[in-house]
Structures are given as C-alpha cells and as structure tokens.
Amino acid sequence: MNFLSLLEIYKWSLPASVLMAAALCLIGAQWTAREKSAQIFVLGQGSSLGIVLGLVLNILLGTDFHWLSLIGGLSVGGITLLLSDLLVQRKSDRNHIYLTLFVVFLSLTYLATSLTPSLESHMASAYFGDLATMSDGAAQLSLLGALLFIVFVLSSWKQLTLISFQLVNQSFIHRHWKNRIFDAGTLLVTTMAIQSMGYLYTMGSLFIATSFASSRSRNLQSYTIRIVLISAVGSLLGFSVSLLSTILPTVPCVMLGQILVGLLTYMKK
C-alpha cells in the first residue's frame, strides 16, 4: 500500500493527533508555568482510572458506548483535580503527595483491569497508545475538541499567561472566567487525549515542546510559535515515519518526532 493510500486511511487520526498535540503543548506550557506539572501527571492517571471504570461498566452492561469511558474519565479526573487543588495545593511540599496519588490511581487502574479479564489487553494500549487504531469517531471528536480549545487558548494567551504569573507569584486575586474555562478545557482535552491516544502520547505532548522552547525564545510570541511548531510538526513527522514502516509503532515515533523537532529548534537560537 502506498503512502497516499495510508494517508487516506488515517485522514482523521493524523490531523486529530497533530491538533491534539498542539492543544496539549499549550496546556503543558501554562501548567508548567504554574508549577503544577506534577499535578497534571496525577490528573492524567485519575482520568485513566475513570476511563477504565467506564470500560468496565460497558462490559458489565454489555454495551459499547465511547462516551461512557469519557464521562468516567472526566468524573474521576475532575475529582482528582478538585482533591489535588483543595487538599494538596496549600501544602508547601506537595510533590510526594502527587506521586502517592499517582501510585494509588495506577494501582486502582491495574486492579480494575485485572478483575476484568477482557480488559487486560487494554492496559498496554491505554498507556502506550496506538494512533493507527483510533476509530474515526474518536478522531473526529478529538479533532473538534482540540481545535476549539486551541482557538480559545490562543485568543486568550497573554491573559492566561499573566494569570499564570500571578498564580505562581501568589497575587491572583481577580477570579476570571477565562481561567475557569482553561481549567475545565484542560480536564476535557487531557481526558479525550488519554482515552483516544494514550497516556504516553498525552504526557509527552504536554511537556516536550515547552522543555525545548522556554529558554530559547525571545518573547512570549516566539515561544508560542515554537511550542506549536515542535508539537504539530513533530507529531506529523513521527506519524508519517511510522506509516512508512510496518513495524514502527505510532506513539513512540510521534514522541521522537517532537523531540527531534524540539532539538532542531533548540539549536537554532
């Protein structure tokens, strides 16, 4: 099968994964600036647990509702976010608590998977993902969610950045609806990404771009262009390379693609 025919097969999953990577890198940039990267790590694991519980429910009910897992992921992810915000944020040393929560959620996810034999194979795909096997429906939903979120975030980018500065400087006294939408969008987009593209893809896309771009950019605008380029071009490159081979898995290629583009932009000052 030639490359163009493959592109036809992946006409939804390819753009979905590229746009989702761009949406995730914008989230990762702000959450890292807010010194909350460990928290989103836990949020991701909480969402994973909810997604697995949704799958278990589907099996118990004998149904195959995609949205049941999404609702499960959003619910447990939301509770995780709330818990970690209300209970953990005020503590001065909180990383060990985040890691404990991560291990608890990981254990529960593994437990739920082990108790449901037909889900055993799900564990690997949930963590390492496979963009090639994503359904068209899931890809279209991810594409739409990522696109809407990108439009919102980029149109409010400066304001969200200044809010991030105030949050980390402990001077955030004016609650703002855009920040609430950003938080809710983070939960939604992260959960959708984990459900459709896996934990590794999601976490990588959150943090790879900003790790390369933050120290090499002249200002906020050049930084924003860099992170979007690293994540989108890197994902496109990685996905395309994986399509050229029958043995290369998609997600590791996408991650390596982002790292490669990140390195190239890092070397070009």
């Binding site: 600036a33 400066k158 500065f165 001077s171 933050s214 050049s222 930084y223």
Partner: peptide, 17 residues
C-alpha cells in the same frame, strides 16, 4: 506581593508584562 527572586517558566519580556 513580595517579589523575592521569582523566575518564570515562560519567556516574558518586560513589554509582555
């Protein structure tokens, strides 16, 4: 608030602020 030696992850310029 008290400023301390706050460094920020995003590369804001003074104009950005």
């Amino acid at each position: 608030p008290q400023l301390g030696n706050l460094n920020f992850h995003l590369p804001l310029t003074l104009a950005d602020m």
